[in-house]
Design a protein around this nucleic acid. Structure first.
Lengths: 156, 156
DNA sequence: TATTGTTATACTCTATAACTATA
DNA sequence: TATAGTTATAGAGTATAACAATA
């Protein structure tokens, strides 16, 4: 009879390994989120020694790659709302990494640039970021890297 | 001479399309984040008609898939800190979707279950989620879907 | 009238310390 | 003493409305 074989206590039945994720197991959205969180945690740890968060790093990269970039173009490109971007820029500026200049053509526009110190910090951050990407890429072959980039582009 | 060909004003030079993402263009971490945000936005919109956010949906799925699951096992499985999970559960419970029962074996443990109404809502949510996943999968072939799942698993 | 940058503000998510009740 | 659930709280991140300066 079944009552001669008692269920083990819940705490033992549900060791982490034997838990079911149901329909989430095959969900692209769910898997994508889990991977992104794991990868992001590595990015945060990678840049932390420089006192940079990933979002700040991306701002420095885009300022460096696009001379005299208007502030609103940058925030739009990174999907940051204008009001939220003001505080971000203020922090970078107060650390002496970036500069805002009123555009000579249109006095409503702030164009952005890196200071010499901002350029130095970005060089160091680029080295850390390169090593971080290499660590991610080590888990994939060259072919897999290209495949992943292509597949991600199809979903975006 | 170069000064006979003046630069166009910044606002025109930096139309969104011609902006450079520098080293971020090939960054797996950066691309993964962008795609995840886009896909997550669709998930939020998909479940919104039921008043469910993706995180709440995942909680309902795991409670349904794991009978008498202890509360802390569930929060750990989803990467939600125990203190933050309390408020989440409280909201689901106040909406009559979930139930907490003190475990008979260990009175410190809350085991979780769906109410009849929680089961009904989950059925509807599963339909919406299925359609959402189908929309994502439409952008990929069967082969590409399998490849993506495999590549994401390698990065996690 | 429209746009850029800004302020103020609020809501969600996430993180930690410390309490309680049980074991 | 250790663990599960809880409370309180603080910090990011993100969202909108409204204002000043400029076009």
């Amino acid at each position: 009879m079944s009552n001669t074989v008692p269920m083990p206590p819940a705490a033992i039945r549900y060791a982490d390994s034997e838990l079911s994720f149901g329909v989430l197991r095959k969900s692209i959205g769910f898997r994508l989120r889990r991977v992104q969180l794991a990868v992001m945690a590595e990015a945060i740890a990678t840049l932390a020694p420089l006192g940079l968060r990933p979002a700040q790093f991306s701002v420095l990269v885009l300022i460096d790659a696009n001379p005299d970039l208007p502030q609103s173009k940058l925030s739009a490109a990174l999907g940051i709302r204008r009001p939220n971007f003001v505080a971000m820029l203020h922090e970078l500026e107060s650390r002496g990494l970036t500069r805002r200049c009123i555009s000579s053509g249109d006095r409503r526009i702030n164009t952005l640039a890196l200071t010499a110190e901002g350029q130095r910090l970005l060089r160091r951050a680029n080295e850390l970021h390169e090593a971080y990407e290499s660590r991610l890429n080590e888990r994939l072959s060259a072919r897999e890297r290209a495949d992943l980039a292509r597949l991600l582009a199809k979903l975006e």
